[in-house]
Nucleic acid binder design. Structure first.
Lengths: 315, 315
DNA sequence: ATGAAAGCGCTAACAT
DNA sequence: ATGTTAGCGCTTTCAT
């Protein structure tokens, strides 16, 4: 260790941590020795003693998909600014890291994590959840306003276009986002006295959208309008319709949710409710750093959304 | 602690770790108490003592882009199977985690990390690099065969199509992948006695492809064929050409590298050299788990590639 | 089968 | 300004 080469042991610690109580000369010497010895304090020991790791955990349900890429970029950018490490994890690993308190705070976007696991962690650490309602000390929320957004959007669409045969192409049935979006969808229809619609079971993937659309064609049951619970489903539908020569939006209009990049490159371009995931990530990370540094935390905002009206609806 | 409620302290440790030297009855009692107390051993202390964390670090240069999504999914799936935690990180954070030895092993795909940092870490830990050549104990490689793949592809194309005005649209100039791909490109041209080509500076993004293409149109200098250093560049070019009515491939043919999903959804579909990133990730992760468990490690393979001949070249 | 105790590498009182 | 020392919460000899 630098200790050997230097002189003491705690003094070394002081020097390395930039404490004031150490003579500049000794300080420099120690730093130099450390440098030359390629010494760097052991994180595990440091963490054990200081009871903090400087790591922020981001727990997501999968690495796939453009949503998380953007969200993570935003979170990462902001955390780096404040000297925190980002630790992204998915799957069973996440539970372990949470239980072990390997991170000082957590951002949760993974419905596989149980409420109880989150609560346990939140007893001593701040946590931001993005995919469920859960009350408790140290638990904060930032949520996409799924229901309101889809409701507003559907109402707007249905006031302008008098579609009668309308379908909802869903995500996984137990997905929080899907459930809320469906609520908004149904409420809009109900208020406009549209008393029936077709419910199509999907799962947020392009493949599901594609297969569902093929079945609709097969059975000759193509609706006038399909609201897809996310963009990827819609992209799958578009692909199928394009291949089979179904005209969009003349034969069937479409819209999605998220505003992923692909919607701008596919033909026709997809109308969608767009979330700025990058900015959302920054907001969340900024909030966490405030909490951890005990700054008076302003309330955490919900993400902004904007409607992108494009070719899959207006002719 | 469970210790209080239970009886001893080391016995608790034994029980929790499933050591054989503990009476089944005590064992069960301890486990039960621990459960009820929501006790879970502190990771930092455990790591400090055992000198390992069970964490594998994956250090990438950004979360954006479909390449990393797939790669991470593959790595994650494999690591989970073997009980390792995945820790993904990007940016300055990565250096810190490496220096601190917060992980037992590392996978590197980030040219911002310095050779020396990697070497230091590799003194005691295995490391797999995907983006550079670097020799040393504990350093392993798995690399896309950029040069060979582009070389083969270009030769094949140029033997069939007698393009004369050919361009290379590059990634960042210092990118390892870009440099190698350009090498392969040049070598193919050279062997076919094509003595000049246009070099276009890009940076692996859709925007760069889009802007570059707009400039080509502006200056009326559209080549017969553009080899794009990755798919995203090509997608940008296609977008620009589509908007300006340039016919692909009649006026200008295109090809890319990576095989991202988008290439299959854009019109026309992009010809590309496709890497199976998911499978690649699995391979790498599998290799690491072997090394860490001292199993006789088979050599680490390079990722497979396949050429997807699609609409941007053959009419 | 169980307990006592040393020690992993660090930080932070507390001396000096 | 510097050194001594007591833990942080675990694992693991070594006794019993």
């Amino acid at each position: 260790m630098a200790k050997k080469a230097g002189v003491s042991i705690s003094t070394a610690s002081y020097a390395l941590n930039g404490k004031p109580n150490v003579h500049p000369k000794t300080r420099d010497r120690i730093l130099q020795i450390a440098e030359s010895l390629n010494y760097y304090p052991n994180a595990h020991a440091k963490n054990l003693k200081s009871r903090r790791s400087n790591n922020i955990g981001v727990f997501i349900y999968g690495f796939a998909g453009p949503i998380f890429s953007d969200l993570l970029e935003g979170i990462n950018m902001q955390l780096q600014k404040h000297g925190y490490n980002i630790i992204v994890s998915s799957g069973t690993t996440s539970s372990v890291l949470l239980r072990q308190r390997s991170v000082d705070a957590a951002i949760i976007f993974d419905s596989n994590l149980k409420d109880q696991e989150i609560k346990n962690f939140s007893e001593n650490h701040p946590i931001v959840v993005l995919d469920r309602y859960l009350d408790g000390k140290n638990i904060y929320h930032s949520m996409i306003q799924n229901k309101e957004l889809v409701y507003d959007f559907m109402k707007k669409v249905l006031m302008e276009k008098k579609y009668k045969k309308i379908a909802y192409l869903s995500g996984p049935e137990d997905s929080f986002n899907n459930i809320e979006r469906y609520e908004g969808f149904k409420q809009a229809l109900s208020e406009l006295n549209i008393n029936n619609h077709v419910y199509l079971q999907g799962d947020f993937t392009i493949e599901a959208g594609y297969n569902t659309a093929l079945q609709l064609i097969e059975k000759n049951e193509i609706p006038e309008f399909i609201y897809c619970a996310n963009d990827e489903l819609a992209v799958g539908v578009i692909k199928a319709f394009n291949e089979k020569g179904i005209k969009i939006p003349e034969q069937c209009a479409l819209a999605g949710f998220d505003g992923i990049q692909l919607t701008d490159f596919i033909t026709p371009k997809l109308t969608t409710i767009a979330i700025n995931h990058f900015e959302w990530g920054r907001q969340i990370a900024g909030f966490i750093t405030r909490i951890l540094s005990n700054q008076n935390a302003y309330p955490l905002k919900n993400p902004d959304a904007s409607i992108l009206m494009r070719q899959t609806i207006w002719i």
